[in-house]
Design a binder for these strands. Structure first.
Lengths: 205, 205
DNA sequence: ACTTGAATGGCAGGCGCTGACATTGATCGC
DNA sequence: GCGATCAATGTCAGCGCCTGCCATTCAAGT
């Protein structure tokens, strides 16, 4: 009972591994049979566990399908933390979106993301869950940007900041949906630059 | 069988009336007991119908809760149709959002919207459905704006337009969440003006 | 009156999801 | 080694959302 921390680490590691395994199997099944046609029992059987255990790792079927986006959320916040403190929020956000650009440079990642995107488009509940996660991600970035502003000694207008983050994500979504059909990885970066230059808020000129 | 159109009108009228009745009862129950604690059976019993019939009017419990937003979507498109053809998209969108401002001028509407907003915030699935509807509304406005641009003889950049609409909605959301606590109806209009002025895309200056 | 079509109710069932309880299995103190 | 402990898992039962399917009813047209 003393080595609780070490035990926790191991347990945590195991949990993560199982989680990834489930998400991986689920992703494959969704791509093969579609999201709605795949039952949680199918996934559980394919992984080799009971349905009840599945729900001990993911709160919902949607969560399993969108596990990849969850991690990207962490990457976003981490990337933002690495940006210079005095950079404008708009430019920082553009740099944050580079994680998406870099991920889509890999063909495998691109195919996976395209498959998930296609799956999400066909299932209303999955799309709703996706939008929910995007919303949550925006909230995290707003909080981080608020903290950065406070670190600079500023007290920014929170609603404006929320709107700025929302605008940046609107640009990302637009660029993504446009570059979805294209197979050139560089297109996304160009599209993103073009859109974010056109929509750049006047307060940052 | 000849007077098919007249019959259809009556049936349609009846359907709308029943739909409104269901939505009204559901809203009251949600406000009283919360969204998740209220079952579809509760609503059906309160209206005086079977659960099966409820699902013939609404595809889901969430749809019943968000019936009001559905109508606002129609109002948005209608309001946009009334704007001058040469007005910039950003200013048109600001005018479109006046329907929200006007609705929140009425105290009753404000309380209802606040109640729904609060309910949505407490229930993840309802929030997800709400975001889904907002997304759909944006799509409709993008299509309408595309048609207007074509009417002017222009061929606008679609991804940029999508991003612009998304940015405007981000402003609306930010202003709404900020003015949620305030009880002054004029605050929303001011907040909206301030945020949309700060975030106005450079392409519209 | 007969027919047609739509609205409704009732029933059965699938699926997502959860609580409760028992079992297993690894770790730790002795 | 041995029992205690605690997390992970399985099993079972059950609720709530949602959907076909079929029978009934009721209004409207012929």
């Amino acid at each position: 009972m003393c080595d609780m921390s070490g035990t926790s680490e191991l347990r945590e590691l195991s949990r993560r591994a199982v989680r990834s395994k489930i998400a991986e199997v689920a992703e494959r099944l969704f791509a093969a049979k579609g999201f709605e046609a795949t039952t949680v029992d199918d996934i559980a059987k394919a992984v080799g566990m009971s349905q009840r255990t599945f729900f001990r790792y993911f709160a919902s079927k949607e969560d399993a399908a969108l596990d990849g986006f969850e991690r990207r959320s962490d990457d976003f916040v981490a990337r933002l933390a690495g940006r210079p403190l005095m950079e404008s929020e708009w430019d920082s956000l553009r740099r944050v979106f580079d994680v998406v650009v870099e991920q889509s440079a890999d063909a495998g990642h691109r195919n996976r993301i395209a498959a998930i995107h296609q799956t999400a488009g066909a299932s209303p509940t999955l799309l709703a869950a996706y939008l929910h996660k995007v919303d949550h991600m925006q909230q995290r970035l707003v909080d981080a940007l608020l903290a950065r502003a406070a670190e600079r000694g500023e007290t920014p207008d929170e609603p404006v900041l929320r709107a700025v983050v929302g605008s940046a994500f609107a640009c990302l979504q637009a660029a993504l949906s446009c570059a979805a059909g294209s197979s050139h990885p560089a297109d996304l970066a160009e599209q993103l630059d073009a859109v974010m230059a056109a929509v750049r808020p006047v307060r940052y000129v």
